[in-house]
Design a protein around this nucleic acid. Structure first.
Lengths: 345, 345
DNA sequence: CTGAAAGCGCTTACAG
DNA sequence: CTGAAAGCGCTTACAG
């Protein structure tokens, strides 16, 4: 049978309060007593029951991670960094794939409350602020990751999407492209619409216009990226460069370009966004605006844990990280341009 | 403040035992009382505290998922199916990425015990049976996934690796290949060595020998797949077909073939194993021996939950699922062969 | 420095 | 059909 605090107390000839104190390093315990107790704990292979200690007033040391889909490489990579940082700090993480469905989000949130998680990291769309607020009411710390909810006082960590869009446009224009098109996600996804804005704005700065009908909303899947890219490329006056708001769309686009018998980047350049493992595995590997995924996961955990340690609710922090352009082989000079090919890294 | 069972009992004018009974559908409660209580619970927005009920003797409804790395697409996909099935059945899942490191495995196992998870699904290498046994001692149900530990009485779900290797070899030989080579994982990974055995055996059946020096052990990374494939292809009398024991290795091999200026499948065919999203995203997409990932995750959860519901420990079940050959475009007739190209699906 | 006691929010025999 | 009471394994004032 598993040893309890009573067993340890009895063997050591002390009260359970004393054992508890040595476990938690609280109160003053004489050195000999402490060593004695520690020794017994070891002998009995005693591990405090986390359930009991949570009920008695300590934390559960569990975090929820809400994402659309853990099997999507972007979120899988986020999960890994959240898990690692959490584990370092003593927290376990429970995965919750919501498919961005309102009802799944609700079910998971309700479950996380019942399980009394200490905090939740949210990478999925949450349309109703009430949900977020209900978490906070339960004294559950939250941090949004790769999302933001402007106007709502919550921690968040994201990349500077606007700058990301700008980087993409500048890179393409530097290589002589002037017929640009964009594969975006739904306009409701703010990160995506920011990327598009940055892209359009940077183009405008150089006197280039990206017509509204060259900015397409897609489902964030390879299949829809393929379909929409195909439609786009079959138009007369087809674009020479495509900016795709995530790796899945870019892969779809890659396929479409190929299927039309065009080559990349000679006939059409593609810039992607995210830089998951997928981006480096395609042929050609994708030039991409990279999100600092590892860092984002780590910081999101840190924000949550900070809220847990400080008393009162500290003001929410919003962290915005710079995106990085990584040039691989899916972009090159515009057809008919003399620009030297960009060096790869 | 969050409502407790006491609040509900007071409002309803009954004892907490009665409230507990209606929550759990136990005992006989008159219909009116039940409805009254249910109504109050709703009005107070009452949700039972899962921590308390776990401590009082119920389950924690939490499962641990031990994998080498959640950001590896194979395990991310496994995680998704485990999560979905778990959620359906009322369980949450905690992720544990071990990097196959003995000490990380130990830490996580110890943590899962402290948190009193009901079961754990193990997709990571466990060298010491004691660890497994210690889990079972704590009345924690276990199921191995995509692994097996022959001789140890544990549930397991895996694909028929031997048959998978055979399928790969037959497919290649059907297309006229006779200079075969293999990129394997470490020999300690039984799933990989089974795949190799099946491959070698099927070749032998048709009088073909796969020399030992054409079976290379690799780290399961793209990089090492690349390195080893390159070495292999630079040998005189280079193979016309490569069997890679997972998608990562196959991607590395793809890269190596390309870099040597050879084309796929004209100069060299590649058969991969697993069929994660990566396999369909490369160019050309990979012909692969697919594991039924979704099914494996689901069944692993079912095995664990079955152990939890039955009393006594039911005999361990070992489920072996058939692999499936999915022909894509990384395989074709051997150079100089007249065999018609295989139809794709 | 140490311990007795109350309490966390439930479940489950048991008695009536 | 319903309730009083004990107990799950801890933590934390509080008293000494």
């Amino acid at each position: 049978m598993k040893a309890t605090i009573y067993d340890v107390a009895r063997e050591a000839g002390v009260s359970i309060a004393t054992v508890s104190h040595v476990i938690n390093g609280k109160g003053k315990i004489s050195r000999e007593r402490r060593e004695e107790v520690l020794h017994i704990m070891q002998r009995l292979n005693y591990r405090p029951n986390a359930i009991a200690s949570a009920l008695a007033g300590k934390k559960t040391y569990t975090l929820g991670l809400l994402v659309p889909d853990i099997s999507n490489p972007f979120f899988a990579e986020i999960a890994r960094s959240v898990e690692d940082r959490g584990h370092q700090l003593g927290y376990s993480v429970v995965i919750c794939s919501t498919d961005n469905k309102e009802d799944k989000v609700k079910r998971y949130v309700s479950l996380l409350k019942q399980k009394q998680v200490d905090g939740v990291i949210i990478g999925t769309g949450i349309s109703h602020e009430e949900l977020l607020a209900s978490l906070q009411d339960h004294a559950i710390a939250i941090a949004l990751i790769a999302r933001d909810h402007p106007g709502f006082g919550a921690n968040s960590v994201r990349v500077h999407d606007l700058d990301g869009g700008r980087l993409a446009a500048d890179h393409l224009m530097d290589m002589g492209h002037d017929r640009l098109a964009v594969l975006a996600e739904s306009e409701r996804v703010t990160s995506s619409s920011e990327r598009v804005s940055g892209f359009v704005e940077a183009a405008a700065v150089r006197g280039l216009k990206v017509p509204g009908d060259r900015i397409i909303s897609c489902e964030p899947t390879i299949e829809d990226g393929y379909q929409q890219a195909k439609g786009m490329l079959e138009r007369p006056d087809r674009p020479t460069a495509l900016f795709c708001c995530n790796d899945l769309l870019a892969i779809g686009a890659l396929r479409a370009v190929r299927e039309l018998g065009l080559s990349i980047p000679e006939d059409c350049s593609i810039v992607s966004f995210d830089d998951t493992i997928l981006a480096s595995v395609t042929d050609p590997p994708l030039t991409v605006i990279a999100q600092p995924i590892e860092q984002m996961g780590r910081l999101a955990v840190d924000l949550v844990v900070r809220d847990l340690s400080e008393q009162g609710d500290p003001a929410a922090r919003r962290i915005v990280l710079p995106p990085e352009l990584i040039v691989r082989r899916s972009t090159g000079s515009a057809p008919g341009t003399l620009t030297a090919p960009c060096s790869t890294r």
